[in-house]
């Protein structure tokens, strides 16, 4: 384990706060080897289609069957429940913000922090494959933030959030916003222990996105439709998108907003304040 940052020797995941000496950002102030998995590539067998049983001959015997019936996501799910318990004990309202890259998650967050940052005690966890850019944007607003860089990882998991939150030292009664890696597929499977999952789509995307990526929309609680100021210029049909989203998840609650003009943001703020208190 790296003594400076606590990152695991075999893990490319890093945790950094803006303006702190230790950093793994593009400047590489603190350089050390993060050994990646070595794949020796011994392709000494002729057939490329592994059948997984070619090396093993066990003739008539099929071995002794041991029933396992264990959910493969158990480890993540139980750690997520630990996070959830921690958040509940400290009355922290945790949001998991997910979307495709470019839907406006960080801009939504920035505007929210500017507009109601005085009313609620915000903390932010930023997730991206690389760079401190998003954390720097949040830090510029004087909001405590930590950046998780997943390296090649396509999603945050409960363990990353657990480590990040410990470093962030979140106060009681706070609102913790976890901005996930921009990706509508992978993050849907990984519970982080959040109170609510918020999926953002923008009108510059297809209005059929909810049924193209149903797993994510099914797992979300809130759907924010962003960039509505651009509706006159695009073919996005808001009602159609909402119908699609409702068909995969009829509990979804919608907010139609423009982060740029501020339209619709007050409803989102009212929901945040109201839900945080309950």
């Amino acid at each position: 384990m790296c003594d400076t940052c606590g990152c695991e020797g075999d893990s490319p995941v890093t945790y950094n706060k803006p303006n702190e000496e230790h950093s793994h950002d593009e400047k590489n102030e603190h350089s050390h080897e993060h050994p990646h998995h070595e794949h020796p590539h011994h392709h000494d067998h002729a057939d490329k289609h592994h059948s997984h049983d070619h090396k093993h001959e066990h003739g008539h015997s099929h071995g002794k069957e041991m029933k396992i019936e264990q959910n493969i996501l158990t480890k993540n799910n139980s750690l997520a429940e630990r996070n959830r318990g921690y958040f509940e004990a400290k009355n922290i309202f945790a949001l998991n913000l997910v979307s495709s890259p470019g839907s406006g998650k960080t801009s939504l967050l920035e505007r929210t922090l500017k507009d109601i940052g005085q009313d609620l005690n915000f903390y932010v966890v930023e997730g991206d494959q690389q760079t401190m850019n998003d954390a720097n944007r949040i830090a510029a607003l004087k909001v405590p933030v930590i950046q998780i860089n997943t390296g090649n990882g396509c999603h945050l998991d409960a363990e990353m959030v657990n480590k990040a939150v410990k470093q962030l030292n979140v106060a009681n009664d706070a609102v913790l916003v976890i901005e996930n890696v921009g990706n509508l597929v992978c993050p849907s499977l990984f519970d982080l222990g959040e109170s609510k999952r918020v999926v953002v789509i923008s009108v510059t995307e297809g209005d059929d996105k909810p049924i193209k990526y149903p797993t994510m929309f099914h797992s979300a609680d809130i759907c924010i439709i962003n960039k509505i100021d651009l509706l006159p210029y695009v073919d996005f049909d808001v009602e159609k998108a909402k119908n699609y989203a409702s068909s995969v998840n009829h509990h979804l609650k919608f907010f139609e907003v423009s982060v740029k003009t501020g339209e619709g943001m007050s409803a989102w703020y009212a929901w945040l304040k109201d839900t945080q208190q309950h």
Binding site: K64, E65, I68
Partner: peptide, 10 residues
């Protein structure tokens, strides 16, 4: 479902 159902051992 996303689970390991059974493991067979020798």
């Amino acid at each position: 479902e996303l689970q390991i159902k059974s493991i067979f051992i020798e």
